[in-house]
Amino acid sequence: MTADMLYVLWLRQMRRYVRSRSRILGAVGQPILYLLALGYGLGSVFKRAGGGNYIEFLVPGVIVQTILFSSVFWGIQIIWDKQFGFLKETLVAPVSRFTIMLGGVLGGATIAFIQGVLVLVSALVLGFRPDTWALVPVALVVMIVLAVSMACLGTGIASLVNDFQGFQAINNFVVFPMFFLSGALYPLVGIPLLLFAVSAVNPLSYAVDGLRDVLIHQSRFGIGIDLGVLAALTVVLAWFGVFTFSRIEA
């Protein structure tokens, strides 16, 4: 029964997703644009500075970017559902808040994962090649864990605020800094010590690092630590999402 319920909640999001072509294009197009604009624009500078191939370096970063923003988008959907009323329909159903939240997170995370895969495939089409093909499944695992944890984060943020402005504010002060200090777009070397410390406690750094390790064998921490940190992060954010969502009023 509960599996059925999770399935319809998941299915609802998938239906909305496949019906919204602009959303698919927008969410995949932007990272590709980053990849091309930054990759070709800064590639030679990066190489001269001894960083190697910048496009290769960027691919894991833009995958993380895609997944991060797509899964946090699930939070925006919750706020929409609050404002357009649909949330009430799910909140009065004789189903635990945990199930409602889990169905939503699974839907949001699935969409984010699909978007991440689309970006990876686009990168392959553009000529990107992973160092070890056999490690691609590990990359997919990192992507899934990231998608789930960030969808939980989006749920938590959306449960705490009542409108888009509030969500945007938290987005700007939490999610964007997390992204820029994750090493997704530039290597975190030679930056001020404080920023380096921040990046070391930034869970997104471990997602970027993990993907970079399995795709192009460049790593600060190693995939083992990366996955461990991401798993712990998922537990914490899932708790945060469940706790805040269970207290939501509509």
């Binding site: 909305r16 019906r19 919204s20 009323g85």
Partner: peptide, 11 residues
């Protein structure tokens, strides 16, 4: 049945 809309208009 709520006073205001609670259906999903995209479905």
């Amino acid at each position: 049945v709520f006073q205001d809309t609670t259906v999903d208009t995209e479905l």
